[in-house]
Design a protein around this nucleic acid. Sequence first.
RNA 1: GGGCGCAUGGCUCAGUUGGUUAGAGCGCCGCGUUCACAUCGCGGAGACCGCUGGUUCGAGUCCAGCUGCGCCCACCA
Length: 885
Amino acid sequence: MEKQYNPSDVEERLYAHWMKQGYFRAGESSAKPKYSIVIPPPNVTGVLHMGHALNNTIQDILIRHKRMKGFEVMWMPGTDHAGIATQNVVERRLAKEKKNRHILGREAFIKEVWKWKEEYHATITNQLKKLGSSCDWSRERFTMDDGLSLAVRRVFVKLYNDGLIYRGKYIINWCPRCETALSDEEAEHKELNGKLYHLRYPYEDGSGYVVVATTRPETMLGDVAVAVNPTDERYTCIKAKKINLPLTGRVIPFIEDGFVDKEFGTGAVKVTPAHDPNDFGMGQRHNLVPIMVMDGSGKMAGDIPEKYKGMGRFDCRKAIIEDLEAAGLVEKIEEHKHAVGHCYRCDTVVEPYYSDQWFVKMKPLAEPALAAAVNDEIRFYPARYKKTYIDWMENIRDWCISRQIWWGHRIPVWYCSCGQVIADEEAPGKCTHCGSTNLRQDEDVLDTWFSSWLWPFSTMGWPEDNNFIKKFFPTDTLATAPEILFFWVARMIMASCHFTGKLPFTDVILHGTVRDKTGRKMSKSLGNTIDPLEIIRDYGTDALRFSMIMITAQGSDVFLGKDTFDIGRNFANKLWNASRFLLGNINDGAVKGALPPADRLKAEDKWILSKLQRVIKNMDSAVSTFRFNEACHTMYDFAWGEFCDWYIEAKKADFYQEDDPQLKADALSLCGYLLASLLKLLHPIMPFITEEIWSHLRAKMTFDGVIDAESIMLAKYPEPDTSLINEAVENNFDILKSCIIALRTIRSENNIPPDKTGTAVIIPADKAVSDWLASQTAVINTFARLSETTVDVNAKKPGFAGSSVVRGNQIFLSLEGLIDKKVEIDRLTKEAARLKSMAANTKAKLESENFASRAPAEVVEKEREKYQGILVNLEKTEKALKDLQ
RNA sequence: GGGCGCAUGGCUCAGUUGGUUAGAGCGCCGCGUUCACAUCGCGGAGACCGCUGGUUCGAGUCCAGCUGCGCCCACCA
C-alpha cells in the first residue's frame, strides 16, 4: 500500500469492476425484501453541480446501506427532458450561429435538441458514475422514452375523458422571452422597487377626471372600464359618467365591483381584462370584452394607436407616461414596492396574458394526496415540510399544462374542421364525428412536469403491468430539494394515488440547498459554482461525499468552499494509513483471524468492542432517521478518536513484542475484526476507499463471518451485539485516558521534550481504581512517555513534581529539574479556583430547598456525588499547591 | 400580507425527548519529524448559547415578546 491514499488510482477501476459484476442490478424475482428509490432525474440542460452531488450521495448511502442489510435494492437512474430549460439552451447555442428555431423549423429544431440531449446525457451519467452512484444502469430512463411518452398520453387522455383536463381562455402567466405559458409555480415572485403611477382619466362630459393608480401604465391601452367599490361614497355621484380613455379615443364606463379596495390609491381601478388576472375576473363578472394590446413577445400590438405598435412593453411604459405627462394627465408618481412574477427559466418578468390553454383540475387529485400527509402515510424529513405541503394542497389551483414550445410531449389532441376535438393516445386516422381525415394536432407541448409526475411508475413500465413494477413499486424513499416540493413531489403523490392507487414512496427527504461560503446559492450565472469533478480530481469522491454529508445537518443548507473537502480527504488518508499499519504487521501470507476467547481479551479489547457496539447502534439510528451528518460524526470520532488514537496505539505493544505469538495473533485478529466492521459501517458513505482497503484486508486475512464477501458492497452490515457493551470497562478507560491526558498536559505545559522520560506516581482514590490503574502502568508509560509509573494508595508523593487530580486520583509527574515551579503553581491555582467556583455552585444547588424536595431522587443523588467529587479534587489540588509553595 | 427557519468560542456548524464541568472541524498559540499517517501527533487558549420576560427544583434546549438575517407562499391595482 502506498504511503498516501490516492483516490484516482482506485475509483475508476473499482466502479468498472462493480459494473462488470452486476452488483447494481436489481432482481425482480429476488426473494429478499425490496428497497427502491427513483432518482430525481437531472435535467439534460447541462452538467451536474454540487446540489446533485449532495442529492445523489444521500441516495447512494441509503441504497448501499440497505443492500448490505440484505435488501434487494433498486435505484432507478434517468434524466429529464426539461422542456423550456432545454429548449432555451439549444436556442442560445443556435443564436451563436445566427440561427433560430423558426429558421430551422419544428422538425429540424427538435433534431438539434436531441443532439444536445445525447451530449449532456452522456456527461451526466458519467458524472453520476464518478460520484459512485450504485444505480441500476440497465434500467435507465428518459422522460421522452417511448414507454414514458405512452404513459404521458395515457394519463392525458384518461384525465380528459374523466373531465379533469379542460381547455379554455384564461389569464395565465406568460413569459415573453420564452413565448410560452407558465404554470403558477413557474412564475417566481420577486420583490421589486417599482413605481405607482397615478393617472388622470377625464370624464367624457369635461367635468373633470378620476385618478387611477397602476404599476403598469402601458396596459391602459387595453382598459375597458374603471372600477370602484359599490360602497364607496366618493364615487356615488360620478359613477354614471363615462370616461374618455386617454391616448385611445375610447369611451369606457365605470363599473362597481366589491373586489376594489377603497383604501388603496384613490379607490378607483383601471380594468384591463386581457392583461391582469384580477381585472380578468372583473371583466367576466361584468361581461366586458378583453382587449389585447400586447403580443406574445411582449411588444405592443392590436387595436392601439399606431405610434405604440411594436414597442417593447417597458419602452411603451415610458412613452405612455411621457405622452400623458404632456397632456397633463399624470397626477403623481410614487415609489412602490411590489412582488413581480419572473420566469423560473430565464428570469424575465412574466406578463399576465389572456390565451387559450389546457388545464388540469387539481382539487379531486389533491384530496387523497393531502390525506396521505395528514395521516403520516407519507413522512417528510425535516418534518416541518409537512405543513408546507398541506397548506399548498389545501389551496391548490388548477394547473396550466400547455406550453407554446416545441421540445416535449406534444398534446395528444386533434382538431377536426367540423369542430370535433379528439383526445387519443395515438393519432386518429379520421374524425370520430364526421369521418374527415383533415385533422390537425394541437401545436403545443405539455409542461415538462406532466411527464415527471409519473416518474415513479412510468419508469417501471406503467401502464404495462410486469414483475418489475410488482416488485419495486411503490418505492421507499425520495430524496430531493425543497425547491421542487410543489413542482414535483406533490404532483407525483397525486399522480400515483390517482393512477396506481398507491403512494409513490413513504419517506421524503428534503435536503438543503448548496451555497457558497458567503451564503449565495450556487449558480452558473453567479459564477460561484464548484465543479464536483474538480473536487473529485483533487480530493477524491469519498472525500467529496464524506465532507459534504458531514457538514450538512438534516434539512439545512450546505455552505461549501474548496477547503471544505480537506476533512474528508484527511479522514480517508487516516483510514488508509491505519489500515496500512495494521496490514503491514502481517508479513507471513494470509492469516486466519478469529476473535480470541473472552479470557484472552485484554482491557483495551473489551473497551473497543464495547464502543463498537454503540457505534453500530448509533449508525442504525442515524441512517434510519436520515441524519447522515450524525453517521459521519459517529464514524469519524470512532475511527480516528478511539480506534486510531487509543486502541491501535495501545496494541502496538502487542505487535512489537516477539515473545508471545498468541498475543500478536490476537491483536491482529481483533484489529482485523475492528477494521472490517469499520469499513462496512463506512462503506455506504465512502464506497471506494472502503472497498480498496477491503481487498487488501482480504488478501492478508480470512475471518469467518466477518470478512465475508468478495466485495464489501455485498458484505453483511454489522449488527450490534449488546452483550459486548460493558459500562464498567468504559468507565475504567475514561479514568485511564484522563490520567494519561493529565500527565501529557503537565509535560506539555512545562515544555518537557519528548525524549525526556520521567516517572509518575499515582495515588488512587480507592482500591478498585488502584487495581485497574496498576494493571495499566505499561500503557500509561507508553502513552505519557514515562520510564516508570507507581500506583499505590500508600505511595509517598514526590517532593517536587507536577501534579493533577483526576476523579480523586492524585497524579504526580516527577522529572528531575524539568518541572517549572511557577508554571505548576499557576496551573494549580487556576484549577483550584475553577473547582472552588464549581463547588460553590453545586453546593448552592444542593442547599436549595426546592431542589432537594422537588427534583427526582436520582438527580439529587447524582448532584451530591458530584459535589463530593469536586470537594475531593479541590482538597487534593489545594494540598499539592501548598506543598509546592 | 401569511407561513417557516436560523441566531452557540475568530470562522463554519453539532447539540434527538430540559439534568454531569456546552462539543467538533477549521483557524490561533506552544512542543514535536518517537519505526501507519506533517493530508500527522501531543498539549493549550478561546463561549454571560442574539435580547427581554415567563414556565420549571433545573433552560442552549420549552413558551411569549423583541431584534437581526434567510427561505417559502400570496391576484391591492
